[in-house]
Amino acid sequence: MELDPDASGHGPEPLIAVSGLKKAFEDVVAVDGISFSVERGEIYGFLGPNGAGKTTTINILTGLSRPDSGAISVAGLDCSGNPKAAQHMIGVVPDESNLYPELSGFDNLCFCASLYGMRRRERQERAEELLRAFGLEQAAGRRFAGYSRGMKRKLTIAAGIIHRPPILFLDEPTTGIDVASARQIRQLIADLNSTGTTVFLTTHYIEEAERLCRRIAFIVRGRIARVDTVENLMRDTEGRHVVRFSFRGDAGRVCERIEAALPGLRCSRVPDGVRVESADPVRVGPVVRLLEDDGLEVTEARKIYPSLEEVFVSITGIEAGLMKQEKERNRGGGGS
């Protein structure tokens, strides 16, 4: 299958190029014809809620899953028909730490290095180097099963880069770990990228994507809603004014009434309230009066300052906070 040249983004030769990628599991469409490209040396963010198709996309790109249709090229190698074609060039950190519980941290890294054909001495040196870099040298001889969640995550990232891959896929690297470990991992990702590693990062933490990524793709229900640089995405919020109204009571079709009664306002429902957006400063009084006339008890009106989260909400219609909470519930993690 030919690659769609429009999917190639800014650079002439993207490191990863995906065109018209589709994948369904029985009657559930996980990935619905997405196209995108990742340039050499960038951190590319894939941002979306649970079930948006992020992990399915990573699985297809890394050879763990086969697409129903579409074209994939990784480092110039056509992986559409041969999912293993580029596996020597990629490192993968899955959304769950999946090293061997019975092996020590050191042995896990040495074993992973052997899978990439590294010789004994080379893999031992590399394992020691990574254990030092990730602050795990004290735990090198301990079984992986006894590691804390943050330590497991760090060692899983170390295993993903043991063979110095030019491309690293990170699936939710900081989900469910403590704040300090998450910060450390973000720094490690930035350091890796500064040494030339191209990173494909899926996350549901908008602030993480904002801090690390050059470009971000918003993926919702298997489709890419928008791809752009963080600067361009943020530009969308310039000159826009957003106020969130919280209230008690049955809102019914309150947004339609607000938009009809107060021209120039765009209204969307959010949990326990509405989000009102306008090109001019939002006049709070008329909106509150309208809500109260509808029998709603307004508890708060809060100005929302421009952020990537706002862009995400306005493009996808999904509350970022909800997305984060849902993920933490599923993982039983403590957040970051």
């Binding site: 890394t62 050879g63 763990l64 293993k84 596996q87 020597h88 990629i90 993968v92 899955p94 769950e96 999946n98 090293l99 061997y100 519980p101 992973c112 899978l115 990439y116 054909g117 295993a159």
Partner: peptide, 15 residues
């Protein structure tokens, strides 16, 4: 079940 088998499937060797 523990997903460590994925490590092997990701290795650049034939199935």
């Amino acid at each position: 079940k523990g997903r460590s088998f994925e490590r092997l499937l990701l290795a650049p060797i034939s199935l």
